[in-house]
Amino acid sequence: MNIQKFPDYGTLSQHTAEHIVALINQKPTATLCLASGDTPIETYHRFVALAQAKQVDVSQCTFVGLDEWVGFGPNDFGSCSYYVFRDLFTPLNLRPDQLHVFDAKATDLAAECTRIDDLIKSRAGLDLLLVGMGMNGHIALNEPGTPFTLGCHVVDLAESTKTVGQKYFEKETTLNQGITVGLRHLTEAHEVILMVSGAKKASVLYDALRGSVSEQMPASIMQTHPNAQIWVDEAAGSLLA
């Protein structure tokens, strides 16, 4: 577990973007699973700028969607995939065959989980998993109490996740379930980056990294990964020595 603090959000974002560029340049056929949410948005903007400046070629990469609200899709404002398409996939001009996101409107969500599980297995695991952390310590939509051994699955959302999730929508929206890549895929990923920004996450981050490893604190699984990068700005890392 490698913890690095950066002076501000912009520096954190630039470092992460450059790291992804370096990874792809080293392995042009990399499989990447990248989070939605507020934290990585600037990373994606900067990565796109580097790609448009011909610093990296993403044409052979495979991109896997991390999670989605059940009942929502890429064209629905507020969905997880809406933002990743807006900030990353569409500006990169990725081909449809490079993109594998959950169809959270499917009638058979278990089959969707199997489809993404099988894809990740066929790629010999994720080369990079980039995640953030929720206020209750969740990783992707793996809520507290989720077994670390689960692959892709459907989850009943915690009340705090339902509440925080409202910020992505223009009006109050009913959120009950999510579909998500499981923590087993994090364990098996070649590299995991946890990005955390902002003072409001400081105490949760401290508990995740300095407390015991527990399924009640999903982010604590980062302590067990041999190639875990925890990259934070000064505000988020203020309680870490």
Score class of each variant (00 low, 15 high):
Leu119Cys: 11
His190Arg: 09
Thr62Lys: 04
Gln229Gly: 05
Ala202Phe: 00
Leu66Phe: 00
Thr180Glu: 09
Arg86Asp: 07
Phe6Arg: 06
Ala241Gln: 08
Thr173Cys: 07
Val131Leu: 11
Ala51Gln: 13
Glu234Arg: 04
Asn93His: 13
Thr146Ile: 03
Gln177Arg: 09
Ala208Leu: 08
Lys200Phe: 09
Ala51Ser: 11
Arg95Lys: 10
Asn176Phe: 03
Gln229Val: 07
Gln52Phe: 07
Ser13Cys: 12
Gly73Pro: 01
Val21Trp: 00
Thr39Lys: 00
Pro226Tyr: 02
Phe85Tyr: 14
Tyr9Gly: 15
Cys113Lys: 08
Arg184Ala: 03
Arg46Tyr: 01
Ala51Leu: 05
Gly145Ala: 09
His138Cys: 05
Asp67Val: 11
Gln52Glu: 12
Leu209Cys: 10
Tyr9Met: 02
Ala199Asn: 06
Ala110Gln: 14
Pro218Trp: 11
Glu143Leu: 04
Leu88Ala: 04
Leu175Gly: 03
Phe102Cys: 10
Cys80Pro: 06
Ile20Trp: 01
Gly78Thr: 03
Gly65Asn: 14
Asp8Ile: 02
Asp117Ile: 13
Pro226Leu: 00
Thr43Asp: 08
Pro226Lys: 13
Ala49Pro: 08
Thr161Met: 04
Phe89Gly: 10
Ile20Gly: 12
Ala51Lys: 12
Pro74Tyr: 11
Ala110Lys: 07
Gly145Trp: 07
Ala140Phe: 09
His185Leu: 07
Tyr44Ser: 14
Cys113His: 01
Asp207Trp: 05
Leu34Asp: 11
Asp57Pro: 06
Asn93Ser: 02
Leu129Gln: 14
Leu119Trp: 10
Lys171Thr: 15
Thr11Phe: 03
Thr224Lys: 13
Ala202Asp: 11
Glu191Cys: 12
Leu34Ser: 08
His45Ser: 14
Lys171Phe: 11
Ala53Leu: 08
Val164Leu: 08
Thr173Pro: 02
Ile230Cys: 11
Tyr82Ala: 03
Ser160Ile: 09
Gln26Ile: 05
Val192His: 00
Glu172Thr: 15
Gly182Glu: 07
Leu129Trp: 01
Asp103Arg: 13
Pro7Ala: 14
Val181Met: 14
Val58Tyr: 09
Arg46Asp: 13
Leu130Asp: 10
Gly182Thr: 03
Gln55Phe: 15
Arg115Val: 04
Leu240Gln: 03
Leu126Trp: 00
Thr180Gly: 07
Pro7Trp: 10
Ile116Tyr: 12
Ser79Thr: 01
Gly178Leu: 11
Pro218Thr: 01
Val196Glu: 10
Leu50Met: 09
Asn93Trp: 01
Thr39Ala: 13
Leu88Tyr: 14
His45Arg: 10
Val155Thr: 10
Val213Asp: 06
Ala241Arg: 03
Thr11Tyr: 06
Lys201Ser: 14
Gly134Ala: 03
Asp103Ser: 09
Gly211Thr: 12
Leu119Gly: 07
Pro74His: 03
Gly134Cys: 04
Thr180Cys: 07
Glu18Asn: 08
Ser79Asn: 06
Gln166His: 11
Asp156Tyr: 05
His190Ala: 04
Leu141Tyr: 15
Thr174Leu: 05
Val204Gln: 11
Arg46Phe: 06
Ile139Asp: 07
Val70Arg: 04
Ile24Cys: 15
Asn75Ser: 14
Ala228Ile: 01
Pro226Phe: 01
Pro147Glu: 10
Asn2Pro: 02
Asp97Cys: 04
Val204Thr: 12
Asp97Val: 06
Arg86His: 09
Glu172Trp: 03
Asn75Arg: 05
Phe169Ala: 06
Ile24Phe: 10
Lys27Tyr: 03
Leu12Tyr: 00
Asn25Phe: 00
Leu130Lys: 08
Leu119Thr: 03
